[in-house]
C-alpha cells in the first residue's frame, strides 16, 4: 500500500481518473482505490477531497437511490475536471518516469 504522504498529492488525480471511467459514490470509490492496490483511504480523507472537487467545479454531484439503506451522492466528472485530469496525468507521468529512471539501478526483489 502507498504511504499516506505520497497519496496526499495524488488522491485528487486518482479520484478524477476513476470518475472519468464512471460516476460513483464515496464508498464505491474507496473500494475501487483499495482494489487497485493504491490505498485504503479513510473516510476522513476521501470525503473532504470529494467535496473539494465539487466546490472547485471539477466534479458534479447527484443523488441516487441505493438498494439498501440511505440515498447516495454520486459524483460525475465535469469538463473542467477532465482538463485538470489531463494536465495532472501528464505531470504524473513525467514525475513517474523521472523516479523510474532514478530507481532503474535499484535491484528488484
Amino acid at each position: 500500500m502507498t504511504p499516506r504522504p505520497w497519496l496526499h498529492g495524488f488522491l485528487d488525480l486518482c479520484l478524477l481518473a476513476m470518475l472519468r471511467e464512471r460516476a460513483d459514490y464515496g464508498y464505491g470509490l474507496s473500494q475501487r482505490l483499495a482494489a487497485a492496490g493504491v490505498a485504503e483511504v479513510p473516510g476522513g480523507t476521501l470525503y473532504p477531497a470529494l467535496l473539494r472537487l465539487e466546490e472547485q467545479g471539477l466534479a458534479t454531484p447527484s443523488w441516487g437511490p441505493s438498494e439498501s439503506g440511505p440515498r447516495r451522492k454520486y459524483y460525475a466528472i465535469t469538463g473542467a475536471g477532465l482538463d485538470v485530469l489531463e494536465q495532472q496525468a501528464g505531470d504524473w507521468r513525467r514525475f513517474r518516469d523521472g523516479v523510474d529512471s532514478l530507481l532503474s539501478a535499484v535491484p528488484h526483489e
Binding site: 473532504p48 467535496l51 505531470d91
Partner: peptide, 25 residues
C-alpha cells in the same frame, strides 16, 4: 467511527476545502 471526533473533523474539512486544487500542480 468514520470521521473521528466531530470538532476535529470539522476543522480538518475546512482546512481541506480551503486547500488548493491539487498539491502536485
Amino acid at each position: 467511527d468514520v470521521f473521528g471526533p466531530a470538532h476535529l473533523y470539522a476543522r480538518h474539512l475546512m482546512a481541506e476545502l480551503n486547500a488548493p486544487a491539487a498539491a502536485t500542480t
